[in-house]
Amino acid sequence: MSQDALILDEYVPYRLAVASSAVSTLISTLYDSLYGLKIPEWRLIVVLREDGPSTQQALVKRAGMDKVTISRAAQALAKRRLITRAPHEHDGRSHHLILTSEGERLFADVAPAAVEYEKLMLADFSSEEVAIMKRLLRRIEDAALKAQAGAEA
């Protein structure tokens, strides 16, 4: 068999997808069953909490989600009054999404449980291994973005 043969269980994109799915399934149970949140909605809350008011275009880049997913998450959160929309001061076609005080309270409720889930998932790793994993994941992300940009050019 050739060294270049594709073996699914050894294929890094597959391993990343499977790991991501397993983590998402675990965490979505917490977000959805206890707080009625989908993963994109929770991610949007966290990004708005960290970054402050943002446009949907900025959120696409920051949150790693496409504009349709961002739009649906924003609509769901606005309906629950967890975020609000404010006009963009320089672009009449755009608006800022802003976390409301109710959204802040929900973040304060969910964040400790999210941190505990992360600790649970990483319990068998040393702090050095976690740091290495985070660096490697960022490098994989950067390499994928660079390859994507090259393919689009």
Rank of each mutant, 00 (worst) to 15 (best):
D4H: 12
I7Q: 04
D9T: 14
E10S: 13
E10L: 15
Y11C: 01
V18M: 14
V18S: 11
A19H: 14
S20K: 08
S21E: 12
A22P: 00
V23S: 05
S28V: 08
D32H: 15
L34H: 14
R43I: 14
L44N: 03
P53I: 00
S54Y: 02
T55K: 06
A58N: 12
A58F: 03
R62T: 13
R62H: 07
A63R: 01
G64M: 03
K67L: 08
A73V: 02
Q75W: 15
A76F: 10
A76H: 15
L77A: 01
K79H: 09
I83F: 03
R85Q: 15
R85H: 09
A86T: 14
P87Q: 05
H88Y: 02
S94R: 06
H96V: 00
L97M: 09
I98A: 02
T100C: 02
S101F: 10
S101I: 08
D109S: 13
A111I: 07
A114I: 07
V115T: 06
K119V: 07
A123K: 10
D124P: 04
S127K: 12
S127T: 14
A131E: 12
R135E: 12
R135L: 13
R139S: 09
E141R: 15
A143S: 14
Q148L: 12
Q148N: 06
A149P: 00
G150A: 13
